[in-house]
């Protein structure tokens, strides 16, 4: 299957699944799908740096939190609408991303990992201690539900599960479009060149610093988008939005789905959100089983589940055409 066919197929499956969710109209399923869609936005964002550029942003959740807090502060303290706060949250995250970039983009490898993680840690403690603004560990409560006008559908509000899902999916759609176009624009080629051999990229004129800033800015913006939708959806923002658990989750989504691929992070996000729910039947064995599944995924699909080609395995299992017998060499 060509990439084009695979992406069309993916879109068809996604549309079908979304339609089924709205038709079945089950609050529990829609809640899982809503979180899946929100975290898919984040996984897409992290994949820009970790997958395409090859710099592993271990503090990526920073932008999720910045988006969440910006939305909470603007709606609760300044009386902004959620829509306006969403736009501001994205811009704010991009701005923070560029500032963080000034420091971290001088670094490579483990130093980059440590520096990005340090920024996340700083943000976590600022959120806890800057009580006048963040209200400390108690957080900001009672955000207005996300709502906006969709063309052809009308006003959508996240007050009911279907509205929330519609809003999260709209956000995901925007994220997919942005990532797809940025990667296809030629920036993707430059990122891959930098990832694969930075000196060689420089030797043919590719400006690694400029392209790294571009990747970080777009990825931070997506983090802010996800954070703003999440904050509106759950209605509360606490310092836990910067929690390392979110970071691990998003990381798993990217790695399990397929680092540096287009569909991988999205598939990974829905898998990581869904599988633990499916495992609820196993009760207290739920998390150990999930852990084993993760190990299996990494062992059997080290390039991510979207790199698996089950139809190839099927073909390999079928008996092959017998090899052509060697031509007998007659006496000279």
């Amino acid at each position: 299957m060509s990439a084009r066919v695979r992406i069309s197929l993916g879109l068809a499956v996604a549309t079908g699944a979304a339609a089924a969710l709205f038709i079945v109209d089950d609050a529990y399923l829609m809640r899982i799908a809503t979180l899946g869609a929100i975290f898919a936005i984040l996984a897409l964002g992290l994949n820009l740096t970790a997958g395409h550029l090859g710099l592993f942003d271990f503090g990526y959740i920073l932008y999720f939190g910045i988006g969440g807090y910006t939305t909470a502060l603007l709606t609760l303290r300044a009386g902004w609408s959620w829509e306006a706060a969403l736009v501001a949250s994205v811009l704010m995250s991009v701005a923070v991303g560029l500032l963080v970039g000034v420091v971290v983009l001088r670094l490579r490898g483990p130093y980059f990992v440590i520096a990005t993680f340090s920024f996340l840690t700083v943000a976590y403690y600022v959120a806890i201690n800057w009580k006048e603004v963040t209200n400390g560990p108690l957080g900001l409560i009672g955000l207005p539900a996300p709502a906006f006008n969709l063309p052809a559908i009308g006003r959508v509000e996240a007050l009911d599960p279907a509205g929330a899902l519609a809003i999260a999916l709209t956000g995901l759609l925007i994220a997919v479009a942005v990532v797809w176009r940025v990667v296809e624009s030629g920036a993707g080629r430059a990122w891959h060149a930098i990832r694969d051999n930075e000196d060689l990229a420089a030797s043919v004129g590719i400006d690694a610093t400029a392209y790294a800033f571009l990747a970080l800015a777009v990825s931070a913006g997506l983090g802010g988008l996800g954070g703003s939708i999440y904050a509106g959806y759950v209605g509360i923002v606490t310092p836990e939005i910067f929690a390392f658990g979110h970071m691990v989750n998003v990381l798993l989504m990217v790695v399990i789905g397929g680092t540096g691929t287009f569909l991988g992070p999205i598939v990974g996000a829905f898998l990581v959100e869904t599988v633990p729910e499916l495992l609820r039947v196993a009760e207290s064995f739920r998390l150990p089983i999930f852990g084993l599944l993760l190990i299996a995924a990494i062992l059997f699909a080290p390039q991510g589940v979207v790199s698996l080609r089950p139809w190839r395995a099927l073909r390999a299992g079928r008996p092959r055409v017998p090899p052509v017998p060697p031509v007998e060499e007659g006496p000279a």
């Binding site: 624009s185 030629g186 080629r189 990229a201 043919v204 004129g205 590719i206």
Partner: peptide, 16 residues
């Protein structure tokens, strides 16, 4: 193609 990247860079916005 990556080697010729700079020659095509003017088109990045058009590419988007």
């Amino acid at each position: 193609v990556a080697g010729s990247h700079v020659r095509a860079e003017a088109g990045i916005q058009a590419g988007f």
